[in-house]
Amino acid sequence: MKVTLNVWRQEGPHREGRMVRYENVDVDPHMSFLEMLDQLNERLILQGEEAIAFDHDCREGICGACGVMIDGQAHGPLPETTTCQLHMRQFKDGDEIHIEPWRAGAFPVVKDLVVDRSAFDRVIQAGGFISVNTGSAPDANLVPVEKKIADSAMDAATCIGCGACVAQCPNGAAQLFTSAKVAHLGMLPQGQPERWGRAAGMVGQMEEESFGSCTNFTECEAVCPKGISVDFIAQMNRDFLKAKLRSS
């Protein structure tokens, strides 16, 4: 089948970018979305043009490196699916597809479809850890964790930090990401000693970065490749408020 692509091309961080149209791109319905881009890149290189830069690593939906806006939806039309796990059989012959980088003040474009997501790393550094003694590994069941809590913490921990939530949010807000990270450790017994500092620290760092503010659109939840719920946002807000009340 053949599709037409409109791809954002931008040579570097502070350069002007524009949408470029690629017509008659040959694709096999079994190709992944990234393979389709790989193939287009081969064509571009043979034509002596610059290949389209895009991020990817594991190509199995677990690393969070890939991720572009496909027809105005982060990671494309399939729910709970990363761009690398999206296949061209989801599209029809003759489709026109728009591919854009994540758009957010906090995620400046590096090149073409690649954005700088180090703002997320700084949010993690501000509290996304627990302190443990070094030495040999403790017994696995030394600290009992209630099943319900273990499940919920695991749901939060599935966040791969891809940034789709920020990209889809009309406010460019990072609440879903930050709340998943705050909740995942904040719910477990191992995360209790730093719980309040973590909530205040990570939210504080999130607010230092150029993210927007949540208006509870819940758009983030709809495009999260791991289906993380906005319930964690309420949890984070509660912990943030408690942390502020405790410190005053």
């Binding site: 954002w8 105005g72 854009e100 003040g105 906090a106 009309p170 460019g172 927007g212």
Partner: peptide, 8 residues
């Protein structure tokens, strides 16, 4: 927080 908007 969204200085450049999406084309689509």
């Amino acid at each position: 927080a969204r200085p450049v908007s999406y084309a689509k």
